[in-house]
Design a protein around this nucleic acid. Structure first.
Length: 337
DNA sequence: AAGATTGGCAACCGCTTTGTC
DNA sequence: AGACAAAGCGGTTGCCAATCT
């Protein structure tokens, strides 16, 4: 037996919205608000539509301040960076782009951006190298290629001198779903901190700060392990913080970066979260521009394609972890690296 | 000019999460 | 604590316009 339908399908109109319906919905919401009940709204508004349909129409089209039309280069970069780090969490990505809806971004990604990336020239083609070296978005994708040989993988046997990290409590991890997102986001933040056009604090940290707070707080106090195991509900994710610094950097983004992996080691090399392929070791100059050390860091087309094709399956996910989402696993998805 | 193909977008579907009783 | 309802979310579908043959 299936789930009860949310509305009487036979009496509900489907398909494109007419201008009259739009006007009715808009007028009703302008006057009364949604009333916190989308299911009842269409009837009250005199619409023969499913509540879900009304909600979608409102959120994606009628809501004030919705931006339609061309995406800017800046928006492109934000989308690419975030996709590389957190995958297809369109609502989170949309939250970073005022006026854009998740649906909009999803469509834009599926129809244009993805093709832009997979349509890149051969990896050894100069234009690609130039592009990847100049744009962390592409290095993010590219770093995936080296994930199997990442320093962290071999560093697990060498614990950090000290760690300020404590395992998050289960209760504090109600957002564990987004846990991996944070690291990637921080990279985005780091990247955008080098962008004169974007204020990272405003653009990224605002809506995400609570994730940091919830994820990094601890309650059981056991911090002896380098591998933190975050477990809640159906999702279980493993993180290796063994290469993380102790957070004593003076980076001005004090958010989760410090908690995750902001360590700057003695020789000035800094472990930087690789957006997709996990982690890459890069020199970071004082002016915060990113300089890839090794041209081979930049992966080829295949890796990008792989990422894109596998982003929804059980394969590499966001930060170089392997996510097995096997539905048969009673414990739910497990993240390995 | 007409049919076929492709691309873009709006909307739907169904699963998951959250809130309430 | 468990059941149920509603909201949220991401994947997919279907339609339409543009482009190609």
């Amino acid at each position: 037996m299936g789930r009860a339908p949310c509305c009487d399908k036979a009496n509900v109109k489907k398909g494109p919205w007419s201008p009259e319906e739009d006007a009715k919905l808009k007028e009703f919401i302008d006057k009364h608000g949604t009333g916190g009940n989308w299911i009842a709204l269409p009837q009250k508004a005199g619409l023969r539509r499913c509540g879900k349909s009304c909600r979608l129409r409102w959120l994606n089209y009628l809501r004030p301040n919705i931006k339609h039309g061309e995406f800017s280069d800046e928006e492109d970069r934000i989308i690419c960076t975030l996709y590389a780090t957190i995958g297809s969490r369109w609502s989170i990505i949309a939250a970073q782009l005022p006026g854009r809806t998740d649906n909009d971004i999803k469509n834009y990604w599926n129809t244009k951006l993805k093709k832009k990336l997979t349509g890149l020239p051969h990896p050894h083609h100069p234009s690609l190298q130039q592009r990847t070296q100049q744009n962390p978005v592409f290095t993010g994708f590219a770093s995936h290629a080296n994930s199997h040989a990442h320093p962290l993988l071999s560093s697990s046997s060498t614990p950090p001198p000290s760690s300020s990290l404590s395992p998050p409590s289960q209760s504090s991890l109600s957002n564990s779903k987004y846990f991996t997102s944070l690291a990637g986001l921080e990279q985005s933040i780091s990247y955008y901190s080098s962008s004169p056009n974007l204020q990272p604090h405003e653009s990224f940290l605002g809506s995400m700060k609570h994730y940091e707070a919830s994820c990094c707080s601890s309650s059981d106090g056991s911090s002896s392990s380098n591998n933190q195991i975050c477990s809640l509900g159906k999702e279980r994710e493993y993180y290796d913080f063994s290469a993380c610094g102790n957070g004593a950097d003076d980076h001005h983004h004090m958010g989760f970066q410090r908690s995750f992996c902001s360590g700057v080691d003695d020789d000035g090399q800094r472990l930087v979260l690789g957006s997709v392929g996990g982690w890459s070791q890069e020199k970071q100059s004082c002016d915060q521009t990113w300089v890839g050390e090794n041209p081979s860091d930049y992966a080829g087309l295949e890796e990008i394609k792989q990422l894109i094709s596998s982003s929804t399956n059980c394969s590499s996910n966001n930060n170089g972890f392997l996510l097995y989402e096997g539905k048969s696993d009673p414990d739910g998805p497990v993240l390995y690296y």
